[in-house]
Design a protein around this nucleic acid. Structure first.
Lengths: 212, 212
DNA sequence: TAGATTGTTAATCGATTAACAATC
DNA sequence: TAGATTGTTAATCGATTAACAATC
């Protein structure tokens, strides 16, 4: 894998989709796939698929195509899925709990190690065997436990404060579900899931279906 | 607004963000803003902002900039936020409940009218005064109540079946949270929120921070 | 070997940025 | 009026698609 040249964001965003589809093929015991077959499944052009993979060096074989298992593994390596990520969730309402369940049952390699909230009704309850702690304890927890990813599932108003505490606690990335534009330092990776933006885009395309 | 020419998806995806930031400015009683000021707030270039708005006709005034209130309203009109959208949620676990709360409290104009699940433990309970109904009743409900948006918060395995029922029930758009690649007809707008893809991209950027 | 399909270069397309005349 | 800032055209940049030689 050449890691010297910068890979465009557009390529990176397609990789998880490739991987998802390859996993399904793998489960169906499909051994090999050509770029055009993969194109039919993903909706991308065969040409784009070959370009994408060649950003990281050749994964295929002329006249044969790509080995499903090996391509799946390679993409996992590129995405950094060959290691474990420690995560904390801040905000344990329905959304926080949904993310906790999701990560616990579906995302091997992403491990929730602690959960925090300010709500006394939530503090002390257990979610998938993880006890919700008082938000006041977040600082101390991060000092003693190096964490990779902080997940913000709070309200809009608390989001920046949480981000600041996560930053001070030296997380490497923030997965933000709060409908806020939080600011973080250069060295922290910020991934926003702005549900509101997604719903607004959906409304647009419903209202302008002819243009889609 | 010229609706004759197709607006690129990239532009549409930026509109909700503009609107979000304009709303904040409006709340702070800011009356006018220039493209370069808005650029500083959004991270886009002033040039891009002017290009974006000019897709829909001129919203600004030379020498003055843009009127915050009016620009906010215009973007809302473009996105189709001047009407109400009826929505049903299928799958009422934590995620479905989180979306229900979110839509109820934060998204004026998007109204949840019914919720469905297969789980007997959930059927009958009320979430924000909406009773969870048996999934078996979805078909009949959609026949009698025209719905704009169907929200899928089920497991991966059920997602396509739900999508088929929503399609048969003539929804205009589907907001899919299930980690599945569902297929819908041409005339239905599909908006996916693939948490898994988002988390995988986050992992990539954490593992390759130097490249970001 | 012949056929298939990649890897890779070149061409095209589209999106972003720069520049500046128009005008408030 | 002079200054500011848009609207809009032109230039650039980057991403996608097409084409085909390399090769399994």
């Amino acid at each position: 894998m050449k890691s010297s040249t910068k890979i465009s964001n557009a390529v990176i965003r397609r990789l998880p989709r490739y991987r998802r589809i390859l996993e399904e093929l793998k489960n169906k015991d499909v051994e090999r796939i050509s770029s055009s077959e993969l194109g039919a499944l993903t909706g991308y052009t065969a040409s784009q698929i070959r370009q994408d993979f060649n950003n990281f060096g050749g994964f295929g074989q002329q006249g044969y195509g790509y080995n499903v298992q090996s391509l799946f593994t390679q993409i996992g390596l590129i995405l950094g899925l060959d290691r474990e990520y420690g995560m904390v969730i801040v905000g344990c309402g329905n959304l926080g709990q949904a993310i906790a369940n999701y990560a616990t049952y579906y995302k091997k390699g992403f491990k929730i190690t602690a959960m925090f909230d300010v709500n006394p009704k939530l503090i002390g309850i257990s979610i998938n065997d993880i006890e919700v702690q008082d938000y006041e304890l977040l600082d101390g927890y991060l000092r003693n436990n190096p964490i990779d990813i902080g997940i913000i599932c709070t309200t809009k108003n608390s989001a920046q404060d949480v981000a600041n505490k996560l930053t001070a606690g030296k997380v490497k990335g923030i997965w933000n579900f709060a409908p806020a534009d939080i600011e973080v330092g250069e060295d922290i990776v910020l991934e926003n899931v702005h549900l509101s933006d997604s719903l607004n885009a959906l409304a647009y395309y419903i209202s302008n279906r002819d243009q889609q």
